[in-house]
């Protein structure tokens, strides 16, 4: 990275941290003032500021508190411990990846069907859109409960919810991608009397890859959100979602924020990983933009 790029990036980061600190002081000050009033004492600003940044259960934890919480969760525990953020992140990640795989496969299969059949285009697409307009928070508990009553618990129900969110971007991207070959390319295939399967395998699928990768980046982030949402109502004790929920039960805001940051870091890594594969593959295929 060049130095000139670094300046704006650091500036934005600094502004965010500064605003965060100010917010923490302001939002946590109320509690300190109430305490002081109850004790019949006065607090000056110089006393107030350090107090607001070191509370056990702040309304808004300060950045350094979240950093410490995150560090202790990641490095301060054995990774097999139930208090380890790495362990919780792994539980969430495994369901995310399973859901992402199911969602991607479903999205590609549906897109192939839609591109080849007008009736599928008209019958599947409205349902796919409708599925995404239903709030996932409403669907997730039902899926969990119904599957639990059928004896299916653990990873699979969460993966289904993750797939529910992640198939849609793949579907939309692939419908567009599979339709990119122009009229001349299609005519060439026709002049060789190529069948639909051959057009799909040799022309449509390779041409759609740039669209696929763009969709996969959206899909993996959506799968992560789906998994975390699915971990909220399940009474689960494992996963970042469960960590968020127990944090809010016990007013452990630092725990909530640490889990949130863990989730964000995880999403960032996953998207970056797909970006890496994308660059490699597209460069090899001569499709890189």
């Amino acid at each position: 990275m060049r130095r000139a790029d670094l300046v704006p990036i650091l500036t934005v980061l600094l502004v965010i941290v500064a605003v965060w600190y100010l917010g923490a002081i302001r939002m946590n000050a109320t509690w300190e003032r109430d305490q002081a009033a109850r004790a019949g004492t006065e607090v000056t600003w110089s006393q107030l500021i350090p107090l607001t940044l070191t509370q056990d259960r702040p309304v808004l934890p300060a950045p350094h508190q979240v950093a410490v919480g995150l560090w202790e969760g990641v490095a301060g525990q054995a990774v097999t411990s139930r208090r380890s953020l790495v362990w919780h992140a792994w539980v969430t990640l495994s369901a995310t990846l399973a859901g992402f795989a199911i969602g991607t496969a479903a999205g590609i299969l549906l897109a192939v069907g839609i591109v080849h059949s007008r009736s599928m285009d008209q019958s599947v697409m409205p349902w796919a859109v409708a599925s995404q307009t239903v709030p996932i928070l409403a669907i997730a508990p039902m899926v969990i409960v119904v599957m639990a009553s059928a004896g299916v618990t653990g990873l699979l129900p969460k993966a289904i919810i993750a797939a529910w969110l992640s198939f849609f971007p793949v579907l939309v991207g692939m419908v567009k991608g599979l339709r990119t070959p122009d009229a001349m390319q299609m005519d060439l295939m026709r002049s060789w009397s190529a069948g639909r399967r051959q057009v799909l395998a040799r022309l449509r699928l390779p041409s759609s890859l740039p669209y696929l990768f763009a969709s996969l980046k959206v899909a993996i982030a959506a799968a992560l959100v789906g998994t975390i949402v699915a971990e909220l109502p399940s009474g689960a004790t494992a996963g970042l979602g469960a960590r968020l929920l127990s944090g809010s039960y016990y007013g452990q805001t630092v725990q909530i924020w640490s889990a949130l940051f863990m989730a964000a870091i995880l999403a960032g890594l996953l998207v970056a990983l797909i970006g890496l594969v994308e660059r490699r593959v597209l460069a090899r295929m001569g499709l890189a933009a």
Partner: peptide
């Protein structure tokens, strides 16, 4: 055999790979 105004070669195939394409299909 049909030749269009644009070559319409696949960027992900080499020149021999492109010439091979109709042969593979056939």
């Amino acid at each position: 055999g049909y030749v269009f105004q644009a070559p319409g070669l696949y960027p992900w195939r080499t020149i021999s790979g492109n010439i091979s394409l109709p042969l593979e299909i056939m």
